[in-house]
Amino acid sequence: MNFDWSVVGAHRDALAAAAGTTVLLTVTTMAIAVPCGILVASVRLYAWAPLRAIATAYVELFRNLPLILVVYWAFYVLPIATDLRLSPFATGLAALALNVTAYNAETFRAGIGSIRRGQLEAAMALGMSRAQAVRRIVLPQAVRRILPVLASTWVSLFKDTSLVSVIAVTELAYVAMQIRAQTFRVLEMLTAMAAIYWLLGYPQAKLVDWIQRRYAVTE
């Protein structure tokens, strides 16, 4: 049993770039999934019944499917359904965004719904319009409840980017496993992969804890 850890150092540039892609995927997905999640949540809360049903169906669908399957499905079906030839990165991004939007929609909907009806009534009793009441009274309170959940979703997303490696997106998992295949240094590369994820993910997990402590709701 001999280990050659230098192989990790030798490929540090490739690994760093791959880690960057992982982060890019995470950030871009969230940038899409937050506004889209708000949109879907609004539809579920306030729109006309048939639209509400469609939004609910969308959310329920993606809550009940494994993400890795959505990634494969996107890879094979999207080109045929949309006539677009998307890069693996774009396909992976689409799958991730579809998935996270559904979870965010649920988070936003539950967050807003958790604010007591009495708050809305008190605001309207003062003469505010429903829109004013939601904007100035309900939403600020809802944000406090939503933020910790969103932070938690972010960290899950960060881990889930590893799944798009199955369609050859050059993020950290894929690149690390490629190097493993090329150099045959299995233990070294896989441990390095785990270590890099750990180094990136651990602080994020701790940040989520801090956010949850700071925004703990006391009534």
Partner: peptide, 29 residues
């Protein structure tokens, strides 16, 4: 809404806005 402005309501559960100070609660409307 205009009519509601001319009526004031006080609730059993107070329903103050928890994210605003007392001053801002009163000044909000």
């Amino acid at each position: 809404r205009e009519v509601r402005r001319r009526m004031g309501m006080v609730f059993q559960s107070f329903e103050l806005f928890p994210h605003l100070t007392a001053l801002h609660n009163v000044a909000e409307a």
